[in-house]
Simulated assay, not measured.
Amino acid sequence: MDLYFSPMACSMATRIAAYEAGADIRFLKVDTKARPKVVEDGTAFLEVNARGQVPVLRTDDGELIFENAVILPYVADRFPASGLIPADGPERRKVQGWLSFIGSELHIGGFTVLLNPKAPDGAKAFARERLAERLAHLDAHLKGREFLQGRFSVADAYLFVMLTWARYLSLDFGPYPALTAYRERLQTRPSIARAFDEELTLFKAAA
């Protein structure tokens, strides 16, 4: 499998899942600042994904898969022994629900706006208000829980990336003690620590 990624982008969730599962995966860095965007092997990224967004996963059969909500369960299902997503039933749907919540309510509804230098101040203020509500919901949910749903899952990998962005934006986590403790626990998990260190190094090198 090949993962097209950009350092410290949401594609890091798939790197975490791959390390967690022990997957044999090749990482292809995309320069998202270049115009046009280009893959490190010289390929024009728009030829890989016309949407111009990471992550993209190329399977061993050559299929291109887009979007975290699809890629992450695919990786989990390829390596069922990892337990990154339940095989079926209500527990699987709960993990899928968290993937949807993280993607829509945190990623697109909040952080995409805050990280966009072109977003107007009013939009950023509204995004911060929405994020505060969503983070409070997560904090309440995580009280007394180690992970979002049962054991560590692809949803936790995705949420960790969002919480990393929150730290970059210096969001106040004082009101969210359970979420803060959760973030600190995840940071020490071997798959996450490895992925984070690798991507941060690449990010700093490109700055």
Rank of each mutant, 00 (worst) to 15 (best):
E105T: 04
E105K: 04
E105I: 01
E105H: 11
L106C: 04
L106F: 12
L106G: 11
H107I: 01
H107L: 01
H107D: 01
H107V: 02
H107A: 01
I108Y: 12
I108H: 12
I108F: 13
I108Q: 11
G109A: 13
G109V: 10
G109T: 07
G110D: 05
G110S: 11
G110T: 13
G110L: 04
F111Y: 10
F111Q: 03
F111E: 12
T112E: 07
T112Q: 15
T112W: 12
V113C: 05
V113G: 07
V113I: 00
V113P: 04
L114H: 01
L114W: 01
L115S: 05
L115F: 10
L115Q: 09
L115I: 02
L115K: 10
N116I: 00
N116K: 03
N116S: 09
P117R: 03
P117A: 02
K118S: 00
K118P: 06
K118G: 03
A119K: 03
A119P: 11
A119T: 13
P120S: 01
P120E: 02
P120V: 00
D121C: 05
D121F: 06
G122T: 04
G122I: 07
G122D: 14
A123N: 09
A123P: 14
A123W: 01
K124Q: 11
K124G: 07
A125L: 14
A125Q: 13
F126H: 13
F126W: 13
A127I: 05
A127L: 06
R128I: 02
R128E: 11
E129R: 12
E129C: 04
E129F: 08
R130C: 10
L131T: 00
L131F: 07
L131R: 03
E133D: 09
R134D: 02
R134T: 00
L135M: 15
L135P: 15
L135S: 12
L135H: 14
D139C: 06
D139L: 04
D139N: 11
D139E: 02
D139G: 05
A140E: 15
A140S: 15
H141E: 11
H141M: 03
H141P: 15
H141Q: 12
L142E: 10
L142Q: 10
L142H: 07
K143W: 03
G144R: 06
R145S: 07
E146W: 09
E146C: 08
F147D: 04
F147P: 05
L148H: 10
L148M: 11
Q149M: 08
Q149K: 04
Q149W: 09
Q149Y: 11
Q149E: 13
G150N: 08
G150D: 06
G150Q: 11
G150H: 09
G150F: 01
R151V: 14
R151I: 11
R151A: 15
F152Y: 15
F152M: 15
F152P: 15
S153G: 13
S153L: 12
S153R: 13
S153E: 08
S153I: 06
S153M: 07
V154Q: 03
V154P: 01
A155P: 13
A155C: 06
A155R: 09
D156C: 06
D156S: 02
D156F: 09
D156E: 08
